[in-house]
């Protein structure tokens, strides 16, 4: 009896050797996370410290100025960002959701063209953003459409940019809807279209909304493709339509940062802070939506 107890105890204790390894591993993981957090907080802290001084009413109320940067604002850029991102959403969200619904609910995955589309969407999500800028410059700003460097061109560029991401996240949300829901609906005599529209999409709405908002918040921070399609660097009026010239917050930051006067630098920090606040607000909405409509199957 004693012997079994001893050997059992030994076996239990021998487990400790692997627990050392797992502690080391845990420590390494913690260290990695600490480095990332330290870096993030350092950046955030610097921006807040430098930017909070100019985060005032003038920033939102006034237009950029080369004569008085001390009291200038970035109102045209803020409105430009809202216009461009609004247009991006109007173009990309319906298209992206429709494409995802087609691929997930209707397409026969055995057909070569459907497989080709799938493969291309995966690849498109990895294409450098500047490429979308070049594409829109060639076909929308100039070339066939020739609309010029206006809000419409910026919206199209960003919409193309986030379309693959919206398609991929929407498909994931649709895939998370259990097959039994579809079967139950069809068995009652609903058409595939009714099943998609009345059961599957409502059940997937929180995943779709979250993915969409996160991809829009990624688009808000883009400067490179917009510079290519002609988001003007210095503009002192708010856009008044999709055919208006415009600038956006990231483009504004891009022009303010290299200036050597302190007033410009302070304005740049404040603008960065403003952009971060807009982004955090969007992410907060995404998290709220996810928690609000989350479903456990």
């Amino acid at each position: 009896m004693t012997t079994t107890t001893v050997s059992f105890g030994e076996r239990l204790r021998s487990g400790r050797r692997s627990s050392t390894a797992s502690m080391v591993f845990t420590a390494v993981l913690w260290a990695c996370m600490a480095i990332i957090c330290a870096f993030l907080f350092f950046v955030l802290f610097t921006i807040i410290q430098q930017g909070v001084a100019r985060l005032d009413g003038n920033l939102l109320d006034r237009q950029p100025s080369q004569i008085r940067p001390e009291t200038a604002g970035v109102q045209s850029a803020l409105f430009g960002t809202l216009w461009v991102i609004g247009l991006t959403a109007v173009i990309a969200v319906p298209l992206g959701i429709a494409a995802a619904v087609y691929l997930e609910e209707y397409a026969d995955p055995k057909r070569w063209y459907n497989r080709l589309i799938e493969l291309n969407i995966q690849n498109l999500a990895a294409v450098p953003t500047i490429i979308y800028g070049i594409l829109v410059l060639a076909f929308v700003v100039r070339g066939p459409l020739s609309v010029g460097a206006v809000v419409l061109a910026g919206g199209v560029a960003l919409a193309l940019l986030i379309l693959p991401v919206i398609i991929i996240t929407t498909r994931e949300a649709l895939r998370a809807v259990p097959e039994e829901i579809r079967a139950g609906s069809l068995a009652l005599g609903a058409t595939p279209w009714q099943t998609t529209w009345k059961q599957v999409l409502p059940a997937a709405i929180s995943g779709i909304a979250t993915g969409t908002i996160l991809s829009l918040s990624r688009a808000i921070g883009e400067a490179a493709p917009l510079i290519l399609v002609g988001a003007t660097t210095f503009i002192t009026f708010n856009p008044d339509g999709v055919f208006s010239r415009y600038t956006t917050l990231p483009v504004q930051i891009y022009t303010l940062v290299p200036e050597d006067r302190d007033a410009y630098r302070d304005l740049a920090y404040a603008t960065i802070l403003l952009l971060i606040i807009v982004l955090l607000a969007m992410n907060a909405i995404a998290i709220w939506l996810r928690n609000r409509y989350q479903r456990r199957w």
Partner: peptide, 25 residues
Amino acid sequence: GMVFQKPNPFPKSIYDNVAYGPRVT
């Protein structure tokens, strides 16, 4: 009509679950 192995109500109200079939057809 069909009843499945695992109960599969729709993620809707009890009323809407029952009314769904008559509505869509």
